[in-house]
Design a protein around this nucleic acid. Structure first.
Lengths: 152, 152
DNA sequence: TGTTATTTGACCATCCCTGACCTTTATTAT
DNA sequence: ATAATAAAGGTCAGGGATGGTCAAATAACA
């Protein structure tokens, strides 16, 4: 038998898979009761096994009728065209290159109009930095960070 | 079912949506009666779910013939809370301050979950810059640029 | 044996709901 | 008119019910 955290993870993922609504809503204390542990153990499991990187989102509410709600993030259709991923390997980007990538994300419907405006604004903003070198490096890491935030 | 406050919120918003006049007029005591609670609970619901930031206005009158009148204020959704506009005047921001603003934009429903992740990613990304000074300045201009891109 | 992962418990933050007391407005009595 | 009374709505502090955090203890592992 695995440990408590593993068992709880398994239990939650099973329930989640069975749930018709696409999300799972539980009470922290009840769950802890079912596994005969302290409530904060639930937080540990959520923090280590249901992170965004792992494809889960957890919402919660305190107070009377409080809850924990776990949903699997839908990553269908989130695959970026390989070309872009490859380009992102590059360390540095000119403003033009960066804009080009953002535009392709938009026309490919990977991002919304607002999201593209947000990204473009961030990239343009970088041009105020003195050093050309730093500028292009920053554009690169900004692009990578932002794209990662959206697609992973 | 959710809790009392949620139910009352739902009830009021439904009535408001159905109302031809564009506003909803109720008696505090009656409403409390309908939900079998104390009248001040109505104030709680109004204070937490019908704020100006959330796009509602509540007028009232005491005494005989008193009433509560709720209306949805039409801001086209583009008005930012004044507090945030003011804060943005600041030149520099710590990562924490910036995150706070982004979070308020999110909870105030000014931006989506994805947009907030995008903005947070950009802000965090800046932390790789060597100079602390430049970091906090960059955070400031990034915030201003991104918010401007969305709201102007 | 040293490192990492798990588990616990004490303390914290938030949300909801109530009740006592206060203020304002309309109505009624004088 | 004026004063008293009734009929609204407003405020605020408190308590119960949750969930959150963090550091220390313990267990598992390499």
């Amino acid at each position: 038998m695995g440990n408590l955290a593993d068992n709880m993870e398994y239990y939650l993922k099973k329930l989640l898979a069975l749930s018709a609504s696409g999300f799972l809503e539980i009470k922290r204390k009840e769950l802890a009761g079912k596994f005969n542990c302290v409530p904060s153990q639930v937080n540990y499991v959520l923090a280590t096994r249901f992170t965004l990187e792992q494809g889960y989102m957890v919402e919660s509410r305190r107070g009377g009728k409080g809850y924990l709600r776990i949903r699997k993030v839908d990553t269908d259709g989130w695959e970026l065209p390989g070309g872009i991923l490859q380009e992102l390997q590059q360390g540095s980007f000119s403003a033009g290159q960066a804009m080009g990538i953002i535009e392709r994300l938009l026309t490919g419907k990977y991002i919304s109009m607002r999201e593209s405006r947000l990204m473009e604004a961030a990239i343009k903003c970088i041009s105020t930095v003195e050093s050309e070198q730093l500028q292009s490096e920053l554009r690169g890491s900004l692009l990578r960070c932002m794209i990662q935030a959206l697609f992973y």
